[in-house]
């Protein structure tokens, strides 16, 4: 049985369904990311796990504890769930020193002064904050504040850490550094992570599994590699990197890009064509080769050098396909025709 279980949970705000019948099982010690565009319900899901939002349907369990249940109208309040949580805007308390911020959760649990001191010091050491213990967190940089928030969440040694875009207020280079720090801490302490982000590279770098969400629904739950290699839908495909979607229609046995008379020289799975007999052929700009044995033919409209890479805009029928190659590799010039070979084609219903 999985450690964290969300069974059919739904949350509505007025007539917006922020999360719709979501089922999710997460293992102990797993790092699980929720990825999706703004407003898709990531934060709402996390807040339901934390206990800040009630649920309109379903139940949430962690280990053998029932946390929220709509049917039983049971909600364990957030302060009783013993989770660690880190927020986007740091949320460190400006009226307490760094030390007091981290000691706060320990003080609430009637521990001895010695134990509070040693556990706080331990958390400070783990987050490289030992030298800053007595200053105000307001004198720290953004990264420093987020370390305080992390240390505070770690102080109780929780089994579950909830992180809501913890790095998106930081500079890009700091973001990468903190990413690895979080991962190291998890390795050391073995807690499970529920991680919310809208940055796909962050999710890929950190996670054991990723859930891609859209408008309150699950689009796909899988390992980072599988999310990249086998996107379950056109939406996931587009969310994970640069993408081309070539619209095609089936006429007789042939499959042709719209506005083109040449058939696509690739076998298309029969089940992607609905009643409209239309579908899309998805590809990444960097996973297309030029060559006379290409799957479609097109006319080079534009060639742009972007430093390391060259970006081509190729007209196929009435559509445009982007191709990216390294600057040194040979390729056709503007106005020339060329064949395009899709290295990893994906087919999706229209």
């Amino acid at each position: 049985m999985s450690y964290i279980q969300l069974n059919g949970i739904t949350r509505r705000f007025g007539n917006v369904t922020a999360v719709d019948n979501l089922t999710l099982h997460i293992e102990k010690g797993e790092c699980f990311s929720m990825l999706g565009p703004s407003g898709c319900g990531k934060t709402t899901t996390l807040r339901m796990v934390a206990g800040f939002e009630d649920i309109d349907e379903g139940e949430i369990r962690v280990g053998d504890r029932l946390l929220s249940s709509h049917k039983e109208n049971f909600y364990l309040p957030p302060e009783k769930r013993d989770f660690g949580m880190v927020f986007q805007a740091f949320a460190v308390w400006p009226h307490m020193s760094v030390f007091e911020n981290i000691a706060f959760p320990l003080r609430l649990r009637n521990l001895s002064a010695d134990e509070i001191r040693s556990r706080t010091t331990e958390a400070l050491r783990n987050t490289n904050l030992l030298d800053d213990a007595d200053i105000s967190p307001m004198d720290l940089s953004g990264g420093g504040k987020q370390r305080v928030a992390l240390a505070r969440a770690l102080a109780l040694n929780p089994d579950v850490m909830l992180l809501d875009e913890p790095l998106s207020s930081l500079d890009p280079h700091l973001r990468e550094e903190m990413r690895f720090e979080i991962k190291d801490l998890q390795r050391k302490f073995g807690f499970s992570i529920l991680y919310v982000t809208h940055d796909q590279s962050e999710a890929m770098a950190l996670s054991d599994r990723i859930m891609v969400m859209r408008a309150g629904h699950v689009e796909q739950i899988d390992t980072p590699l599988n999310i990249y290699r086998k996107p379950a839908s056109k939406f996931v495909f587009s969310f994970i990197g640069l993408s081309n979607f070539l619209k095609v229609v089936k006429s007789g046995d042939a499959v042709k890009p719209t506005g083109s008379d040449d058939a696509v020289n690739l076998p298309a799975p029969a089940d992607v064509f609905g009643q409209s007999s239309a579908a899309v052929l998805a590809s990444r700009p960097s996973e297309i080769d030029f060559g006379d044995d290409g799957h479609v033919r097109g006319l080079v409209k534009r060639r742009t050098y972007l430093g390391e890479i060259v970006d081509y805009a190729i007209v196929v029928g009435d559509q445009e396909v982007r191709v990216q190659k390294t600057a040194r590799s040979p390729g056709p010039g503007p106005g020339e025709t060329c064949g395009l070979k899709f290295l990893y084609p994906h087919w999706y219903p229209e």
Partner: peptide, 9 residues
């Protein structure tokens, strides 16, 4: 909220 999740009533 971060105080709440830390266990404060």
């Amino acid at each position: 909220e971060s105080a709440r999740i830390s266990g404060a009533s």
